[in-house]
Simulated scan of single mutants.
Amino acid sequence: MSSPALGEFLRTRRARIHPATVGLTDYGRRRMVGLRREEVARLAGMSVDIYTRLERGLGADFPDSVLDAVARALRLDAPEREHLYLLVRPTDPAYAPAIRPGTRALLDSIATPAFVLGRHMEVLAWNALGAKVFGFAPDCNLARFTVLDPAAGIFYPDWEPVATQTAAYLRRQLSRHPRDRRLTALVDELTAENPVFHRLWSLPDIADPHGTRSIEHAALGRLEFAYETMDLLGDQDQTLVVYTAHPDSATADALRERELVGAH
């Protein structure tokens, strides 16, 4: 790894910090503004060699503990911390999910709402009923909708269990891809913006692949579904989600007889 941008970023960040502001004594005349490399290393609790290798872009990898320590030492805010991680570990270029024609055909053959989620809970594809019930749009991210959109609290009458399952899904993906910076940035965003989700994130829940879910549809009122989630083997981190209603239920009647409109 060799990154001039990484070195420049770290140099400008240590240059803006005066030693006295971080409790360091400024002895004698300094040839530079801000912190020296050895001072950053001391504040971060690591050897000068490790910090120097990081700033020079030498070495294939650095653990999260090193990057977190440097971020604290340089007093980086959340966007700067994320930028540091992206400079050290660019987003996985191998993750470029695409929906196979067979998966598309499967979705279209399902007579109930169905859709496919990607690694970051982005909605990759859906069938006609999925679009009508959920109101999916291009670039829809189900995690962001659930956690950050005020409409989600109305759309999901039992919002907290849905948010809990969202946390569990993302936690499972993080366990599989701990160095995916897009994924960790998404979790940082959700936990920072929603205190309730921050609490749910700390709970040791396991993603439930099936269950029941209530939806308050803008046109039809309350809809009651069972849902199933299935990993699509052979496709990168793709999960098929299918909602079903009992054939004799009011929800099934609504899906058959009423014209649905976008939910959000």
Rank of each mutant, 00 (worst) to 15 (best):
4 P>D: 02
5 A>S: 11
6 L>C: 03
8 E>I: 02
9 F>G: 03
10 L>A: 02
15 A>C: 04
15 A>P: 01
21 T>G: 05
22 V>F: 02
27 Y>E: 10
30 R>W: 01
30 R>A: 02
32 M>F: 04
34 G>R: 00
35 L>W: 00
37 R>M: 00
39 E>P: 02
40 V>R: 01
40 V>W: 00
42 R>S: 10
44 A>V: 03
44 A>Q: 00
48 V>T: 14
49 D>P: 04
50 I>N: 08
52 T>L: 05
53 R>P: 00
54 L>P: 00
57 G>D: 03
58 L>S: 10
60 A>I: 13
63 P>H: 13
66 V>F: 05
69 A>R: 01
69 A>F: 04
69 A>H: 04
76 L>C: 05
80 E>A: 13
80 E>N: 10
82 E>P: 06
94 A>G: 14
94 A>Q: 14
100 R>Q: 09
100 R>M: 07
101 P>Y: 04
102 G>P: 09
102 G>V: 15
103 T>S: 12
103 T>F: 07
104 R>Y: 02
113 P>G: 01
113 P>Q: 07
114 A>N: 05
122 E>F: 02
124 L>H: 04
126 W>N: 03
129 L>Q: 05
130 G>Y: 14
137 A>G: 11
139 D>A: 15
143 A>V: 03
143 A>D: 03
143 A>N: 04
143 A>P: 04
146 T>N: 07
146 T>Y: 04
149 D>Q: 07
150 P>L: 06
155 F>N: 00
156 Y>D: 00
158 D>H: 10
164 T>Y: 03
165 Q>G: 11
167 A>K: 04
168 A>W: 01
169 Y>G: 05
170 L>Q: 06
171 R>T: 12
172 R>Q: 13
173 Q>M: 09
174 L>P: 13
176 R>F: 10
180 D>G: 10
181 R>E: 08
183 L>C: 06
188 D>S: 12
190 L>S: 06
190 L>D: 03
190 L>M: 07
190 L>H: 05
193 E>A: 14
193 E>G: 13
199 R>M: 11
200 L>C: 03
201 W>F: 12
202 S>E: 13
202 S>T: 15
204 P>K: 12
208 D>Q: 14
211 G>F: 07
222 R>M: 09
224 E>D: 15
228 E>Q: 15
229 T>M: 10
230 M>V: 14
232 L>I: 15
233 L>P: 07
233 L>G: 05
233 L>Q: 13
235 D>C: 08
235 D>R: 07
236 Q>N: 12
236 Q>V: 11
244 T>Y: 04
245 A>V: 06
245 A>T: 06
245 A>I: 04
246 H>C: 14
246 H>Q: 15
249 S>T: 01
252 A>Q: 04
253 D>P: 03
253 D>M: 14
256 R>C: 11
256 R>M: 12
257 E>S: 14
257 E>R: 15
261 V>T: 11
262 G>I: 10
262 G>M: 12
264 H>E: 08
